[in-house]
Amino acid sequence: MPERSSCRRARRYAVTLTAVVAAGAAVLTGCTSDGGEAARDASATRSPAPAPAPAWDVRPASIAAVGDSITRGFDACSVLADCPEVSWATGTDGAVRSLAVRLLGASKAASHSWNHAVSGARMAQLPEQMAQAAKERPELITVMIGANDACRDSVRLMTPVEDFRASFEASVRQLRAAAPKTQIYVSSVPDLKRLWSTGRENPLGKQIWKLGICRSMLADADDMGSAAVARREAVRARVMAYNDVLREVCARDERCRYDGGAVFDYRFTGKQLSEWDWFHPGRNGQARLAEIAYRNVTAAGPPA
């Protein structure tokens, strides 16, 4: 009998303890008879975390351009002369409708864009151009350079790929030190072999080529011997390697966007080339470059 009485007391103690624990748990968790609405009300009063600002602004308010003769509009208006007013990046010509005009409007483009490109420039000169452009504190810098690194008097003199890479990396560091939030739009180097293939159809253009334009690709334009073919293929391969560098370096910077090879892939025709040298883009070609740039700059994401 004493043992059964002791068991009954133990069972009553366990039931009581369970009830106390359950009540305490209800208080601690804020449970109510309506199924936890008090907890939901408290959660609803908390402000949601703000969404992070996008790294790429599709509507920059100012633009600076760096690069070479293409961005200077060389041979687009007259023979062997710059014509920056038709530049695909910052020009004011109504027929071209440059990237600056498309983004900023014609009136604002004149006062909020700057062209620091230099005809004949190679990648080794880009850090200096980048430093000059950074002084303007632009929201976007366009880069189109590299053709002159491949356009040399001979294949042997083309800029080595690693030197090209080192200069481009230095250019990005130069900009980031002075303007850490400026966006960079990088155009691929055009396919020089395709320009040769198109331009050689024009006898006048080939006469201009003999003055020394891009001899590594354009010399002996009608020579289809094995040595000439190999030379042109070597130039094209080097351009493709340069574009790989542009893509790889740009990919490491969240505010840099490469065109995905769009300019290299563009199939220029005689209508897009200069009527004087049949190699540089004319007005029509500059307009096509502006279209490509605008499409990529304003896209929700970088080209695939």
Rank of each mutant, 00 (worst) to 15 (best):
R59D: 11
A95F: 00
M224A: 15
S154Y: 07
H280Y: 05
P54T: 04
A287S: 06
H112Q: 04
P60N: 06
I184T: 13
A39K: 09
A170D: 15
A10R: 15
R283P: 01
S87P: 04
S5C: 06
V58G: 13
D75W: 05
S113F: 09
E201N: 15
R283T: 01
W88S: 12
S197H: 13
S274N: 04
Q174I: 00
P303M: 02
P52E: 07
Q183G: 11
V118A: 02
D191K: 13
L211W: 10
A241T: 05
A25W: 12
A109I: 00
K108A: 15
Y185M: 11
Y185A: 08
S216A: 10
A134R: 14
A100Q: 11
P2M: 05
T298S: 15
Y185G: 04
I184Q: 04
C256E: 00
G301F: 13
L218M: 12
V189G: 03
T29F: 06
D220L: 08
G73E: 11
A221K: 12
D277G: 03
G212N: 01
G91F: 02
G94M: 03
E162A: 04
E136K: 11
L28C: 08
R152C: 08
V161A: 09
A89I: 04
E85D: 15
S43K: 11
D265P: 01
A134E: 10
S33I: 04
E3N: 07
C7P: 01
V15D: 03
A22F: 10
S69Y: 07
A42G: 10
L218N: 09
G285L: 06
L192M: 11
Y185Q: 06
S62D: 12
P127V: 00
R137Q: 02
A117I: 07
R247I: 00
Q125G: 12
Y266S: 05
G270W: 03
V235R: 14
E139N: 10
V186F: 12
M158C: 10
A290S: 10
G91A: 04
A299M: 07
Q286H: 06
D34I: 07
G212Q: 03
F279E: 04
C151P: 03
M144S: 10
A227M: 10
P84E: 05
G120T: 00
R9A: 12
S197Y: 06
I213M: 09
R176V: 02
R122N: 06
L175A: 12
A170E: 15
I141E: 03
A25T: 13
R40T: 05
R267N: 06
V79W: 08
L195R: 09
W88I: 02
D277S: 07
F264T: 01
A179Y: 07
V245F: 13
T298Q: 14
R247T: 07
T142W: 13
W88L: 02
G120I: 01
S47T: 11
S119L: 01
P50R: 09
P54V: 04
A95R: 14
R8S: 11
D222R: 08
E275D: 11
R8Q: 14
W278L: 02
R102D: 06
N284R: 01
